[in-house]
């Protein structure tokens, strides 16, 4: 009977996850294009991968994704931690402020992308207006079509959009921490900063590991914001692995190559999570209490 209750779920997983994943991995080793006369997959071994690695476009795309991830994730974790610490204090109207700060985390990414595309607008965007009034820039900038500024713009948008979720995760973590170590530190006369640095932060380590892992995966899978805000442009300046895989797979219909990109991105994510685990293990020799 229990098997019967679990069976639909297991069948579903096989159909919507396992079959597609293995199919994609297999396609990665095949020549398969929906547009060519040969409409079936043909095994070509590692040729797709070697073609990718000698393709300057793909290398640029990987570099963009790495830059995007390495800049945005630490910023989001840092800002999210600060916001959650502020929200963890007691002040009048805290519930209201918390509700406001966490609001964007459920917004539709496409709408967020348009919001920011409008803020960054070069003709009458609010950001140009504010920066010119503050005297930071002297003329209107075309944020999303400028070679240097496009990446900055999408990263700023991503930080605005995902920091509330990071804040929520940190806040949940802060509230589930044991209270005893902080109390005993207070008795010992520790300052607020000492309590944070020597007790709260080390206790938050497992929470932080999960957050960094989650956000790194998300940043490497960036698609919606980029697609709407810049469509990978100008040139290739904001093209990410996922937008590139989409274009190769669904615009030019080279299924084999697109699958190879997907497989490659999976490997890259695996490596990234390995690096993150190592980074977090190194410091865990510090004793907590």
């Amino acid at each position: 009977m229990y098997y019967l209750m679990a069976a639909p779920a297991i069948i579903l997983i096989a159909i919507i996850f396992l079959y597609p994943v293995f199919y994609t991995i297999w396609c990665g080793f095949c020549k398969y294009s929906l547009l060519s006369a040969i409409n079936t997959a043909k095994w070509i071994g590692l040729k797709n991968f070697s073609a990718l690695l000698s393709d300057a476009t793909f290398l640029q795309v990987i570099w963009n994704t790495i830059v995007y991830t390495i800049v945005s994730v630490p910023m989001e974790v840092f800002l999210g931690l600060i916001c959650s610490l502020l929200l963890d204090r007691s002040f009048r109207g805290r519930g209201f402020v918390r509700a406001l700060w966490l609001l964007p985390f459920m917004f539709t990414p496409v709408v967020v992308a348009y919001q920011w595309r409008w803020l960054f607008n070069d003709q009458s965007g609010l950001i140009n207006y504010l920066l010119m009034n503050l005297g930071i820039i002297s003329e209107k900038l075309a944020w999303l079509s400028d070679i240097k500024l496009a990446m900055v713009s999408v990263i700023v948008t991503d930080i605005w959009y995902t920091t509330p979720f990071v804040t929520l995760l940190f806040l949940g973590g802060l509230q589930s921490l044991p209270i005893e170590p902080l109390e005993s530190a207070e008795v010992d006369g520790a300052s607020g900063w000492q309590k944070f640095w020597y007790i709260t932060l080390p206790l938050l380590r497992p929470v932080m590991l999960v957050i960094v892992l989650l956000k790194t995966m998300d940043a490497m899978k960036a698609f919606d914001l980029i697609y709407i805000m810049t469509y990978g442009g100008p040139g290739l300046k904001t093209e990410m692995i996922m937008t590139y895989a989409y274009k190769v797979g669904f615009i030019t219909f080279k299924i084999g190559q697109s699958s190879a990109i997907s497989v490659f991105s999976l490997l890259l994510m695996l490596v990234a999570s390995g690096v993150i685990f190592l980074l977090f293990r190194e410091k865990s020799t510090i004793t907590y209490y």
Binding site: I13, I16, F17, Y19, V21, T24, C27, M220, M242
Partner: peptide
């Protein structure tokens, strides 16, 4: 049971584009 649950959580992190092509065909 727990292993199946953890497998689902790992599968969840796979980029959607990797599933999009086979699901499109299906």
């Amino acid at each position: 049971g727990k292993s199946i649950f953890l497998t689902i959580m790992v599968l969840r992190t796979i980029p959607l584009i990797a599933l999009a092509v086979p699901l499109y065909k299906l």
